[in-house]
């Protein structure tokens, strides 16, 4: 817990309060300052203020990755909607184990969340360097095993 993390937490909380409040009188601002101090005290007690809780500091490649992820989500949505209207006979549910190459917990978290966010694939379990993934159709697992998303997430974490 360095001074930089405390500063970033304070700025995040202050921005959250100011954007949600919209009333900038002295009373509301002092209430906001009290709330921020209270939340920072609780975060300090819980010992969660470290580099993992602030993925903004991750990498400058994150916006590029998010844009790519948005495109993937749109494509996957189209596929799942097509299979919804084709009916239950057209799907081929698959449960498979895939290997991941991320070194850090944060990288694994981003990869697992990206898999789950993409419709058609859900990360069911994470054990070590292996994810158990349930897919709506078999081609999704094949696409994950090619490892395009895996490579892009690994590039994020340095």
């Amino acid at each position: 817990m360095t001074i930089r993390h405390i500063l970033y937490l304070f700025l995040t909380l202050a921005a959250f309060w100011l954007l949600n409040s919209g009333i900038y009188s002295a009373l509301m601002l002092s209430l906001g300052a009290g709330s921020i101090a209270f939340v920072m005290y609780i975060s300090h007690r819980m010992d969660v203020v470290d580099h993992e809780s602030q993925p903004i500091l991750l990498s400058w490649k994150l916006p590029l990755y998010l844009i790519w992820l948005c495109k993937e989500v749109v494509v996957a949505n189209a596929v799942v909607v097509k299979h919804i209207w084709l009916g239950g006979r057209s799907i081929s549910p698959t449960l498979a184990t895939i290997n991941v190459t991320q070194g850090t917990d944060l990288g694994k978290m981003i990869y697992a969340n990206s898999i789950t966010l993409t419709p058609g694939t859900v990360t069911v379990d994470v054990v070590g360097n292996q994810f158990t993934v349930h897919a709506l159709i078999r081609e999704n697992i094949a696409a994950l095993k090619v490892g395009d998303m895996d490579r892009r997430v690994s590039e994020l974490e340095n």
Binding site: V73, V74, N77, V80, V81, I84, G88, I91, P93, L95, T116, L117, T118, P119, G120, T121, V122, H134, L136
Partner: peptide, 17 residues
């Protein structure tokens, strides 16, 4: 959809896009 896990993907569509 026929079972719980595949229904989860359908919920994913409504939740994301």
């Amino acid at each position: 959809f026929p079972d719980f896990y595949s229904r989860m993907h359908a919920v994913g569509v409504t939740d994301t896009l």
